[in-house]
Design a protein around this nucleic acid. Structure first.
Lengths: 343, 343
DNA sequence: TCCACTCTTTGAATCGTTTCATTGTTACGA
DNA sequence: TCGTAACAATGAAACGATTCAAAGAGTGGA
């Protein structure tokens, strides 16, 4: 048995026309019970499996959706991907996943591939400036939804998260638990996410006249970078220390935590409260469980699929930019302070 | 512009036959320079992109390879996936990725999907017993390679890692650095990986007459479980402590490390050496950088694709089971002990 | 000028499915 | 008995690329 059975083989085996077999598969109601049973038996006996290529060819488009992310290893995207897959499955589509790895040429290859596959649509978290390519795709009938990037609503639909709001949430939480001398730890503010989170934090601090926000630049967004900043803090005199630290992501926060706890004199959260961003798996199992800001990744993935579905409704020329607000996750690292007149 | 250009449109636009356009795309040498240029210009002007469905239909199979993993969020699989994608790209294939999430029904859905897509072959890290399905697939001309699971060479090709050898490596390293009272920390030994790693460690310990190995059962494979075991250790009298601990994975080791370092009296590696397994990203940025056993994930992914290619060579009925040996990564957590007659 | 040969180009047939106009069947009321 | 729905089943055409036998064009030698 070299070649797999076709619909024609099934038709012969069941002594019906090919059209009838097709109807059994696609419009069971149009076929009489007797015939249906015969056809189904034939399908079973021959082990027939639909050839999707032929179906696609006839239909003019596939039932797959292309999804290109910056890094499948990043838990943020992993979670978005899973949600998108589930949402797509519900509407009978499958997701083709591409990992650009922050690499524009890999990204371009995937766009080529997906175009050859005639995907229904494309979800993309773009590396470079791909607007020209996306415009071309749209002309060819393949709509795009941008993921984790805010797009001009006149041009594209998009789903993104409000990093400014996230920064505000984090700083506000530190303020609400009585901290007043805050510090922000984050890499180069040329990274949009870092800049936005900082901006949100500043907004919150301005609401409290007696609160201050110090910005500590970190060399990157890693645990090591965080430990570097932490070590500098530890060398300070007790009075010059912040009492609340907000890190631009959890890795930085874990690094800072390592430095502070190693001193054996500074305690978290009694002396210094600490909050991160992203709520990675490790946050909960840190030495002191880390408070963090959780991004609604499931909602991102699900909504991206929904927006794509909207785009696919032919008589719908509009676009929508959906912006999600992240969520505060309180754990021990921002618990009660030692001796403050907390609010 | 609703429908995208077909090869026929290109042929008309360039005033040549469809066969010629196809030749330009697939056998450029057969076409004269003049004609080639005209056709390429037409392709460019119309923005023609091959329809892969049509090509596939004619060819009888696609240029894609199905890959089903247990958990895309797991760094082990993420790395395997990436290597497989790269290796596949080199031979002109694309990888369709499916995440079964340890769920047999999701796994089954992906197998269905991939069969409809007529993938060239399937790489799978199976959840349940899928041998029957895989046998059927093979009858239909879709070969399978098992990933991270040792298969009977008479039935399937497979790529896997020798956990026994990994366990031996870890224990041997502790012994080589002078430790004699070893402990193994790992979840239920009903998990094959855990059992194999333990067995390898026991093999190494037997080589040293004066060495002992204590088995500490952990409730799971998480940081928290590790911390639980660590807390029990800390309560022991100094003389009853092991001087070298091998954890069945890095998460456990990080948990143990948290407990030990929090005592402020036990030092790693001076008092107790610690080694994990998997070499996750966090290992290097732990408070004390964690020694570990690294699995050759890139080689796994690459080799899986190669074995599949072998299976696809029609005149090749044999199978191969490739078993990789993991690699020791030495970091600070297994540095010199305090006062031992080290080897 | 004609033949033989090579190099290009042609276009019908093919892959497997869906669609849809057409034909066949059955049932029922007039 | 006939006409008319309603329902089932039919099978040719279409989707777009590739293949391949055949025709055409060009070249050089006799």
């Amino acid at each position: 048995m070299n070649r797999s059975a076709s619909i024609k083989d099934v038709a012969n085996h069941a002594s019906v026309a090919v059209g009838t077999v097709s109807n059994v598969l696609n419009y069971p109601d149009r076929v009489s019970q007797r015939t249906k049973e015969r056809v189904l038996r034939a399908i079973d006996e021959l082990g027939f499996v639909r050839n999707d290529a032929a179906r696609q060819l006839r239909a003019g488009h596939s039932r797959t959706i292309g999804l290109i992310v910056l890094d499948v290893g990043n838990p943020f995207f992993t979670s978005v991907v899973r949600a998108a897959e589930d949402a797509a499955a519900l509407q009978g589509s499958a997701v083709l996943l591409g990992d650009s790895g922050h690499n524009a040429s890999r990204e371009s290859n995937y766009i080529d591939l997906f175009q050859e596959q005639r995907v229904q649509g494309l979800l993309i978290s773009p590396v470079g400036d791909v607007t020209e390519r996306l415009d071309l795709l749209r002309e060819r009938g393949i709509p795009t939804v941008l993921v984790d990037r805010l797009a001009d609503e006149n041009k594209y639909s998009s789903v993104s998260v409000d990093d400014d709001a996230g920064g505000y949430l984090a700083a506000r939480h530190l303020l609400d638990t009585g901290r007043r001398r805050l510090a922000f730890v984050g890499g180069p503010t040329t990274i949009r996410q870092v800049a936005d989170r900082l901006q949100g934090a500043q907004r919150a601090v301005k609401e409290e006249p007696d609160a201050t926000l110090e910005v500590l630049d970190s060399a990157g967004q890693t645990v090591l970078a965080g430990r570097g900043v932490g070590n500098l803090l530890v060398e300070r005199g007790r009075g010059e220390l912040p009492d609340g630290i907000f890190c631009a992501n959890d890795l930085l926060a874990l690094g800072v935590m390592q430095s502070l706890t190693m001193t054996h004199t500074l305690r978290i959260p009694e002396d210094i409260a600490l909050i991160g961003y992203d709520d990675i798996d490790f946050a909960v199992s840190a030495v002191v469980p880390l408070s963090s800001i959780r991004q609604p990744t499931e909602a991102l993935g699900r909504t991206a699929i929904e927006l794509l579905a909207e785009e696919l409704e032919s008589n719908n020329p509009g676009h929508r930019a959906v912006i999600f607000t992240p969520e505060l996750v309180v754990r021990q690292s921002t618990g009660p302070a030692r001796s403050t007149s907390a609010g």
